[in-house]
Design a protein around this nucleic acid. Structure first.
Lengths: 203, 203
DNA sequence: GTGCTGTGATTAACGGCGTTAAGTAACAGC
DNA sequence: GCTGTTACTTAACGCCGTTAATCACAGCAC
């Protein structure tokens, strides 16, 4: 029983390592097998197929992101606004620091996702819940406003995701300073949830 | 000379067709060749490799997007704010209406992009320029504000790109209405470039 | 000890892929 | 009729994900 788990763990660790080292595009079952010194088909004893292996890795990434966001949220439990800002920053940093991870987590087209819907979605959505609850706290304390917290949290996420995506794919104009860009993006994302009394009507 | 161009065109058209019909993942040189009734190697007479074929397709997509944005911009030449809003909406609509196109244009990791930098970048950046010029006009007329128009245009783009990406990959909570989400995202994106006198300080 | 069963791994194979090298058939110009 | 060129094909290489069949060996029943 321990040996079964052992090889499964080695596969996951090696895959993550190869992913970071060589990128997603060049990753293959045979290459993973070579790296751990087993035959390619051995991997199929522990994972249904390549997708399933990646899904397991995605789950671990979601867990890690969740842990990081949770820690950030705890550090700013008193101020919803500071908390939301810190969460945004941490999200972007996570994406930039874990490029290949971010790619399989959020960039790859999830064609097969319908197969493992419930648990996977639930796990990914916890990350959004942390943001939504910062929003809810802010609304309650009167320092934020939103018509629908779920929608606002998703919109903020979309803005952050776009920021990370463009940065990772190097599509942002090189003349634009990376940090200035990220700061501007976060500022802009947060500006949307300011309380009504100081918020202007939309353009 | 006309026949050379003919097959090249057929390859491009068929590839686009297969892309829309079956998706990027299942597209192969051999499949394209089968569809046009030629051997796979014939494609290499007109395109250096698979990447080059896709780059040509991306260029066409960029051209189409540019045309659409240009048309929108012309229709709202008098009002920078209405223009910017219409541009945002058109961008999102383009992404949602041309899923597979949008995928190869903006979602795929451009590993090889360094090779064809100048023309490709320039072409893609024209789309951003249309937005930036709406911004510049707005600033000039005093109905918008931004510290740096290039940065603001990119930040808006990032927000729109994130919105399209999450929608296309079906990662947005199903309970959130698609149009409401898009409207909220665009509102939020535009809120960041309101003039200073009505804009609150950042959260 | 002999035989049975189950487990964890292997090898061989299938059909696909992108790409290159070599070859062929049709045709233009001399 | 030969030559060179153009437009295309076939054959092949070395990858890929995945499946089927097989092997080595452990533990256990008798």
């Amino acid at each position: 029983m321990s040996s079964e788990t052992d090889l499964r763990r080695r596969i996951l660790d090696t895959t993550r390592h190869l992913l970071v080292q060589d990128g997603y595009a060049s990753l293959s079952m045979r290459k993973i097998a070579r790296a751990i010194g087993y035959s390619a088909t051995s991997i199929y004893l522990y994972f249904e197929n390549k997708d399933a292996l990646f899904h397991a890795l995605i789950d671990e990434g979601m867990e890690q992101l969740y842990d990081e966001l949770k820690t950030v949220a705890a550090a700013y439990s008193d101020s919803p606004r500071a908390r939301l800002r810190a969460l945004c920053r941490r999200y972007v940093e996570f994406g930039l620091e874990n490029q290949e991870y971010y790619e399989i987590m959020f960039l790859l087209r999830p064609e097969r996702m319908e197969r493992y819907p419930a648990d996977k979605y639930r796990r990914a959505r916890r990350n959004l819940d942390i943001m939504a609850s910062a929003l809810a706290d802010g609304v309650e304390q009167g320092v934020m406003h939103t018509d629908d917290p779920r929608v606002s949290a998703s919109v903020i996420w979309a803005a952050l995701h776009g920021t990370v995506s463009l940065q990772l794919s190097r599509r942002v104009d090189i003349r634009i300073d990376r940090d200035a860009f990220i700061d501007a993006a976060i500022d802009q994302a947060l500006r949307g949830v300011l309380p009504v009394e100081v918020r202007p009507q939309a353009a």
